[in-house]
Design a protein around this nucleic acid. Sequence first.
DNA 1: TGTATACATGTTATATTATAACATTTCAAG
DNA 2: CTTGAAATGTTATAATATAACATGTATACA
Lengths: 177, 177
Amino acid sequence: MSHDHCRNCAAPDLAFAAHDHAPCASEALARAIGILAAKGQRLTPVRRRTLEILLEGHRALGAYEVLSRLATEGFGAQPPVAYRALDFLEEHGLAHRIRRLNAFTACMHMGENHTAAFLICCVCHAISEAPAPPARAALDSAASAQGFTIESATIEALGRCPTCQNAPQLVPNKAAA
Amino acid sequence: MSHDHCRNCAAPDLAFAAHDHAPCASEALARAIGILAAKGQRLTPVRRRTLEILLEGHRALGAYEVLSRLATEGFGAQPPVAYRALDFLEEHGLAHRIRRLNAFTACMHMGENHTAAFLICCVCHAISEAPAPPARAALDSAASAQGFTIESATIEALGRCPTCQNAPQLVPNKAAA
DNA sequence: TGTATACATGTTATATTATAACATTTCAAG
DNA sequence: CTTGAAATGTTATAATATAACATGTATACA
Ligand SMILES: [Zn+2]
Ligand SMILES: [Zn+2]
Ligand SMILES: [Zn+2]
Ligand SMILES: [Zn+2]
C-alpha cells in the first residue's frame, strides 16, 4: 500500500500548510492498525485513543495533557496510564518523543523505520517531521570517524514555521491543526 | 590564540580515547575566562566551580548532581543555585544541555559559536562533542525546503563508543575521564 | 469449556527534574 | 558614600516520570 493515497501526503510534509487534516489522521490510524496486526501487537482501547489524541493535530502533547484527556473519557487517571500507552506507541514506531518539549507527537511516517528530524515552531508550536536521512547520514559519518556506533539519534530544531516568520514573539501554547 | 596549543585538541575529538584530561580542563577554563571577560560577564565563584565540576570528565552531570557537589563546598544547597549557574554557562556557550539525559556537559569548543552534536555512550556514559556542521547543514536544508527557519538545533546520538563496542550491556552510571 | 499464562490496566506512592517568588547580599558606577 | 543592577540564597511548588503491586482480561491449549 502506498503512502500517497492520502493527497495530503504527496508533499514532503505540510504540517505548516493549512490543510484538511482528517485524512492525515484517519490514514495514520489505519496504518497503525495494520502495522500492529502484522507484529501480533494489540491496539487496545487506551492505546488507540491515545494515538487518536496525538493525531488530532500537528503538535506535541505532554503526557499529562494526554492523561487528562484519557481520564475524562473514563480511562485511568494516573500517570502510568498515559506513559504506558505513549511508550508503547513509541516502541512500535507510531509516535515520537520530542525531547525539547518533554512531549509526544504522532509519527508521520509510520512503518518506514526511520530516524526522525523535527522542526518545532516556537511561536505556534506546530511540529513537522522532516526528512532526516541526510542529517542522519552526516551524523553517522561524524560518529564513525570516532569509532562510535549510533543506536538511536535525536534531531530536533526549534525555530519559526513559514506562517510565523514575522510574528512578533513567543505566544502561549496553542493547537495547530 | 589557537585552540591547538593543547595537544589533546589536535584530534577532532578524543573524548573516547584514554588521555591526560587535565590539559583539556585547564585550557577550557582559561578560554572561558577570556570569553566572559570579553563580554563583560562575571565568572563568579559558583559559576566557576560549576564549570570546573563539569570539566572534570567527558560526561554529563544532572543539575542535582552538580548541586550536591556545590553544597558540600559551601555554596547554596537549593536547586536554583545549580540551575542558575548551569543556565548561565549554557547561555554563554560554555556548557551544553544534553536533552536525552536531562543533564549538562562542558562545551569542548568554547567560543566557536556552533551547533553541537553529541555522541553519548550508553555503556560507559562518556560524551563526545562531534563536528556538527555537516549534520546541521543537512537539517537547515530540510528546514528551508519547508520554509522553516532554524533558531537552535539539538543533535544527540546514543550508541557505543569504541571501547564499549562489544560490552555485554548497560551499566550503572560511571565517570569517564 | 476450563484453566493456566502472559499481557494489560489500574492504583498508590514516590522519585526526579525544574521554576516561581521573594529576601538578602555583593558589586561597580557615579 | 550612595545607589541601582546583578548575583546569591531560601522557601515553596510545579512539572515530569517511574517503582511496585493489585486486579482484570485475553489468548493458548489441555
Ligand atoms: Zn495534517
Ligand atoms: Zn516518524
Ligand atoms: Zn579530555
Ligand atoms: Zn560546544
